Amino acid sequence: MKTVLMSGGSGGIGSAIRATLEACGYCVVNIGRTQAEIVCDLQDAVGLEKALKTWLKTNTVDVLIHCAGVGVFEPHETLSAAKIKTLVDTNLTAPLVITSVCLRALCQTKGHVISIASVEATRHAKYSALYTATKSGLRDFGLCLFEEVRKQGVRVTTINPDMTKTPFFDTLHFEPSACEESYLLPQTLAQTVKHVLETKGVVTDITVRPQRVGIAKKTFTCKG
């Protein structure tokens, strides 16, 4: 049985990926603060490194999936240092640290690294500077890493999903529209992961988009 080590496997896209891969016979180990086999704060780089090194002493890894992520879409001048650090630590630093710790093990198994980035990593949008910076960094990391480890037999894939109907939008001021053709489902991305794992060659970079464009702005009512 092959082992999948992943972050963000407790909800949204990650939960769908986990369910799909477990149905295919993979053993999935999640990293996170809740519903995780490796309990760790992804924003604590030192603690994360220590926890993974301990786990790898008695385990191997065949597939590494980076799926944890947070978003903010606000004027950059309004963002605090704490919020900037949260996004950078979660969306970029954690995947870099996890990959660094696991890379030798992945070379031994000729494994696969898969990062869930974002369509925002491929374009430039208003109020997305911080989020795009983290996801573009993750995407470019994957493309560079493939050139570094391809001789060792390690495959590297970055998946760039467009708007996907998940709790990601719960804290944002917008969400996918009601039109079913304007958003992706988490299961679609899970099937994309399954596809790239089963592909004989290497899918280094893939963008998945809905057929139509549709964004709904949320309306908030004052209480009291």
Rank of each mutant, 00 (worst) to 15 (best):
Y183P: 05
V208R: 14
V29D: 08
S100N: 09
C24K: 10
Q43E: 11
D162E: 09
V119Y: 10
R123M: 00
A23K: 10
V63L: 03
E49Q: 12
T34L: 06
T204F: 08
K151S: 09
V101Q: 04
F169A: 02
V196H: 05
Y127I: 03
T78N: 13
L92Q: 08
G111C: 03
V208G: 04
S7G: 04
D205S: 11
G142S: 02
A19K: 10
V196Y: 11
T207C: 14
S7Y: 01
G69I: 07
G69V: 13
E181G: 15
H195I: 12
A16T: 01
G9Y: 05
A190M: 14
K194E: 10
D41A: 03
Y127G: 06
H66I: 06
A190F: 06
N59W: 02
V4M: 09
K110S: 09
T199H: 15
S182L: 06
F174K: 04
Q211L: 13
A82N: 15
T20S: 12
E148N: 08
T207K: 12
C67P: 02
V72P: 01
E181M: 15
S15F: 04
K194S: 12
T90P: 05
T157V: 05
I38H: 12
V61P: 02
S10C: 11
D140F: 04
K217H: 07
R18H: 04
D205H: 07
L42F: 07
D170P: 08
N160Y: 03
V72Q: 11
N30Q: 10
N30T: 06
V88L: 09
R33L: 05
V203T: 14
A36Q: 01
V28C: 11
Q211M: 15
E22I: 02
M1R: 13
E77P: 00
F73R: 03
N59T: 02
G201L: 13
